[in-house]
Computed example of a mutant assay.
Amino acid sequence: MRIRATVVAAVSGALALSALAAPAAQASDDAVSRADIAKVREAAHAASSSKAAFSARAAAYDEPYALNVTFSNFKIAKAVKVGTTNRVTAKVTYTLTHGTDVDITAFDFLTDPFLYKGSFAAPQNVLIGDDFGHCKSTSATKATCSGTIDIRPRDYELLNADAGTWKAGAWAIAFNGEDPGADDFDMGKVGYAEKGGLATTLVQRYSKLTVNASPEPVKKGKTITVTGKLTRANWEAFRYAGYTNQSVKLQFRKKNSNTYTTIKTVKTNSTGNLKTTVKASVDGYYRYNFEGTTTTPAVKAAGDFVDVK
């Protein structure tokens, strides 16, 4: 099970966290583990916090040198909708630009995307993928890289307060033949680069919406009561709970029409329930339409047909 980044926040700086917050997923040759990467990142952050910048000239035995790699053109979906049980995978791509001295085809060159909540220097939480990213060279110094962000709500990776805007980043490590498990492992021969603020996305609590219009059938001119409920994922209790005090549109479309028209706006109560009344006029479908917030995606209920006599 992966551990929330906040649990290990005191252990190391910024983005060593995402490595520590992961299982021992390994590179394709099983040579480098997430723990090895965490060790390099921790050393890099310790070095950068003790001086304005760390460089190849300044690199010492116990810290990596600044790898000649930059990241750009990071792309991810505008929103990642997460429920209460199933793993959610968000695909990402980014451009990696590197110096001619960097061999991105080496077995021990690794790169990975990540998402973080809060500031880059002190994130509240970090999300990563199950596997490292993969890059394909497009020129002598550029590559298109792809990866995933894999989220498992049942593994306590998210708190409800985590819903909202997250930022994206990427890192790269060149071990250059150094064995992290060897007694003579030389950190100074390992290159490391990272960058935050490459893009943003919304990590949202998946929503559900119901509707029921009754009685069915109904006489023309009589009152129809339309009820429903707006719920969203509770990542801490692993269930769906009412989304309170939210504006939801009641909409209607006539039979044989494809267009819904808003009749009125109704607010959910303290348990997420909706209830209002309308006068019956013609046959048609009633639905509720929630337009969403930054923490919760938009959702429409399937139309409920009412036969007017």
Rank of each mutant, 00 (worst) to 15 (best):
R2D: 02
I3R: 10
T6I: 13
V7D: 13
A10V: 01
A10P: 00
S12H: 04
G13L: 00
A14K: 03
L15F: 12
L15W: 11
L20G: 07
L20I: 11
A21H: 03
P23T: 14
A25S: 15
A27N: 14
D29N: 05
S33A: 15
D36V: 08
I37Y: 13
A38Q: 02
V40Y: 00
V40F: 00
E42S: 07
S49E: 10
S50A: 15
A52M: 11
F54L: 15
S55C: 05
A56Q: 07
A58W: 11
A60P: 00
A60C: 12
A60K: 13
Y65Q: 05
Y65S: 01
A66N: 05
N68D: 15
F71P: 10
F71H: 03
F74S: 01
I76V: 15
A77W: 09
K78R: 13
K78N: 12
K81D: 10
N86S: 11
N86C: 04
R87Y: 11
T95N: 06
G99E: 09
G99S: 12
T100M: 09
D101V: 05
A106P: 09
F107A: 09
T111W: 00
T111I: 07
P113S: 05
K117T: 00
K117F: 05
S119R: 09
A122C: 05
A122K: 15
Q124N: 11
Q124C: 02
N125C: 01
I128G: 13
G129L: 04
C135D: 00
A143R: 04
T144L: 09
S146L: 11
G147Y: 07
I151A: 04
R152G: 12
P153Y: 00
R154Y: 03
L159M: 12
T165Y: 02
K167Q: 13
A170H: 01
A170D: 11
N176P: 00
P180M: 01
P180T: 01
G181D: 03
D183Q: 14
F185Q: 03
G191W: 08
G191Y: 04
Y192T: 05
A193T: 05
A193W: 01
E194N: 08
K195W: 07
K195L: 14
L198D: 06
V203I: 13
Q204I: 08
S207F: 01
S207Q: 04
K208D: 15
V211N: 03
N212A: 14
E216V: 11
V218K: 07
K222G: 05
T223S: 10
K229I: 12
T231H: 07
T231C: 06
T231G: 08
R232E: 09
N234T: 05
W235V: 03
E236W: 07
E236I: 08
Y240G: 01
G242P: 04
T244D: 01
S247H: 08
V248Y: 10
L250I: 11
K255S: 14
N256V: 10
S257T: 15
Y260F: 13
Y260S: 12
Y260Q: 11
T261R: 09
T262E: 12
T262V: 11
T265P: 05
T268H: 03
N269E: 06
K275T: 07
K275V: 06
T277M: 04
V278T: 11
V278R: 10
K279C: 08
K279Y: 02
A280T: 06
Y288C: 03
E291Y: 14
E291D: 15
T294D: 14
T295D: 15
T296N: 12
A301D: 07
A302P: 02
G303T: 02
D304R: 12
